[in-house]
């Protein structure tokens, strides 16, 4: 097998790291290493420049407390153009909670004060200032629809009990924990990540959760999201490998890259335990 290596960019690891989001980095790294794919974790923060950011093959950004988000907001302005270019260019990324909100057009505080965000994704967030949306959440995702732009050979290969799509079902259930005051509303140019089965989702009205745009995923899922939902981790890894080592559509000499299937029985059980609690007759 060819030697692959992914540079995983972790955006603001010591500012945007509230409550376990680091788990996503650990899972991405270990699932690569267990398959013989080398990884390097690159911290992207106030001390890194745009070149270092561009060098990343996969991005992850967590949520944060308000004070921390102010600091990050200032620095992100300097990285805005590069990040936008990467997202438009299909660099896969996972943006959680506060990280997700940054990608939108603006954040309206309870006071009515509007904070401009990066404006990369067609969405905005409002905080009505009343209750926070807190609790376990389960959603149904259809990765194939979500990924309409680039239907991947990877998806086809990985059908099976541990694959991206359960054997006889094109849908997939993700479970996690949400805790957010902001309500995110999507524009027409962007799709939700999934439909809410249990919990609130991006806002408490639409019954939709998160967003997916090209290879970028935004979500309110803590938990963190990837350990219990390894399909999503593999989806991100697959996209990153494909982008870095895969062929362009014009080329015939397609490179064969296969993601080795890992035993995800513990994740499955963890998910089942929660779903049994949340959903009757599960």
């Amino acid at each position: 097998m060819k030697k692959y290596k992914l540079n995983i960019g972790w955006l603001y690891p010591d500012l945007m790291n509230i409550y376990g989001d680091r788990g996503n980095i650990i899972v991405l790294q270990k699932r690569c290493e267990w398959r013989g794919i080398k990884t390097e974790i690159i911290s992207i923060d106030q001390n890194t420049n745009n070149e270092q950011l561009l060098n990343c093959d996969l991005l992850m950004m967590g949520g944060a407390q308000d004070t921390q988000q102010e600091i990050v907001g200032k620095d992100l302005e300097k990285k805005k153009q590069t990040l936008k270019k990467m997202i438009e260019d299909y660099v896969p990324g996972l943006y959680i909670c506060g990280g997700f909100q940054y990608l939108g057009k603006y954040y309206k505080e309870a006071s009515g004060n509007i904070i401009n965000q990066l404006g990369i994704l067609d969405m905005y967030t409002e905080n009505p200032g009343d209750r926070r949306l807190i609790g376990n959440i389960a959603i149904e995702v259809d990765f194939v629809i979500a990924n309409e732009v680039k239907q991947s050979k990877w998806v086809e290969k990985r059908k099976g009990p541990h694959g991206l799509r359960p054997q006889d079902d094109d849908d997939c259930i993700l479970v996690g924990f949400e805790n957010h005051g902001g309500r995110t509303i999507l524009g027409s140019n962007i799709k939700p990540l999934g439909k809410v089965i249990y919990g609130y989702g991006s806002n408490d009205v639409s019954l939709e959760e998160g967003a997916i745009y090209k290879n970028t995923i935004g979500t309110y899922f803590h938990g963190p999201i990837l350990p219990k939902n390894p399909e999503l981790a593999d989806w991100l890894i697959a996209r990153a490998l494909e982008k870095k080592y895969g062929s362009t559509s014009s080329s015939e000499s397609k490179e064969k890259i296969e993601l080795k299937i890992l035993n995800d029985s513990i994740a499955k059980k963890a998910r089942e335990v929660i779903l049994k609690k949340l959903i009757k007759n599960y």
Partner: peptide
């Protein structure tokens, strides 16, 4: 228990399986 199992699993060099 399985959430903790996953945490332990991902802290190790090889998968629990």
């Amino acid at each position: 228990c399985y959430d903790m199992g996953l945490r332990v699993n991902y802290s190790m060099e090889f998968p629990i399986s």
